[in-house]
């Protein structure tokens, strides 16, 4: 079976007043049907721009300048806006951090959902309404009939995000791209949404790209992880492997810098320095200036090399298993 999504050497650059910001520079990843991929990175890593590029939603001064995005056998970059319009909302859906990007504040929920259904499916209004109702039930909204007749502002933040998810699910898409959908929500609400998304994707066999800065949250959700830094993927592979034995010094630093209870009162391990500006990237490995392991070998920049099955690392001095066991 072919992959559902294959991205090869994607480059999305922003042509700003101060120079070219290479927000995404040579990203390759692939996704099977029904798979959940966690795309992790900090601000400026290019994770969101990657998501927007797949959907063809990069606005000027940004532009996809290179690479291929092959969705179910069709190249989206070559297909252009026309092809994208046919897929967006029907086969590929997006959930944003702010649900109000999906919801129109002046329209009732039922109007919006019925329109979305009928945009891609030739069904009657009544049938469309029924589908909308079912979608709301699926995302755990009680009294869906009443909710259908409400306006977005009458909902809480968590409820709005659920409606946005329900809208994304209307056409049972093959792929959902979720950009930090729970970041703005409270922890107890975040857990509800995560559990529902997990069940829904499993039931419908929907593939999911979950874009987030929070490695901990996505570790309980994703099958595979891809960690981005400065527009590149620096580590990718099955979740369990990366969390248990991060190979790239950046991934390792990220995991260690999350307060995890047991080390109360002590100093956290921290990654020194700061995220480089996309306009002034360092030579060679982009993480080298902050990396404790960096030396002369880190320039030129290493490629994403396979260190185990399905496990890639872009590093000259990765933390390898053998070395770990030798040290302990």
């Amino acid at each position: 079976m072919t992959k559902l999504l294959e991205i090869e050497g994607l480059q999305t650059h922003f042509f700003t007043r101060d120079g070219v910001a290479k927000a995404v520079d040579g990203v390759s990843l692939s996704l099977d049907r029904g798979e959940i991929l966690g795309l992790v990175g900090e601000s400026g890593s290019g994770k969101s721009v990657t998501g927007f590029s797949i959907l063809g939603l990069v606005d000027p001064p940004g532009r996809v300048v290179g690479g291929r995005i092959v969705f179910d056998g069709a190249d989206l970059v070559a297909g252009g806006e026309r092809m994208m319009r046919g897929l967006r909302g029907r086969r590929i859906a997006m959930i944003f951090q702010d649900p109000m990007m999906t919801l129109n504040p002046v329209l009732r929920i039922d109007t919006q959902m019925i329109e979305t259904v009928r945009a891609h499916a030739d069904v009657s209004r009544a049938a469309a309404r029924e589908r909308a109702r079912e979608a709301l039930v699926r995302v755990g909204i009680s009294s869906p009939d009443e909710r259908l007749e409400s306006y977005p502002h009458q909902f809480s933040g968590g409820m709005r995000q659920r409606v946005a998810i329900a809208i994304a699910l209307l056409h049972e898409p093959d792929l959902i791209i979720a950009d930090e959908p729970t970041t703005a929500l409270d922890v107890t609400i975040q857990a509800q949404i995560l559990s529902e998304v997990q069940t829904l994707c499993a039931e419908a066999g929907t593939a999911l790209i979950w874009i987030t800065h929070d490695l901990a949250v996505v570790s309980g959700l994703a099958d595979r992880l891809a960690v981005m830094y400065a527009g590149r993927i620096i580590e990718a592979g099955p979740t369990a492997g990366i969390i248990a034995r991060p190979a790239h010094p950046y991934t390792k630093g990220l995991i260690e810098s999350v307060p995890q209870g047991k080390r109360h009162g002590t100093l956290l391990k921290q990654i020194g320095g700061m995220t480089p500006s996309l306009l002034h990237l360092p030579r060679g490995c982009k993480f080298a200036p902050r990396c404790p392991r960096a030396d002369a070998a880190c320039d030129p920049e290493p490629p994403l090399a396979e260190i185990a099955a399905g496990r890639g690392v872009r590093c000259v001095h990765p933390h390898l298993e053998a070395e770990e066991s030798a040290a302990s």
Binding site: D59, G62, T275
Partner: peptide, 17 residues
């Protein structure tokens, strides 16, 4: 969506010019 792209690009930190 320009917003989130902008925010993704924004925190440019390196030794500022």
């Amino acid at each position: 969506m320009t917003d989130s792209i902008a925010s993704d690009l924004e925190p440019v930190g390196t030794p500022a010019p």
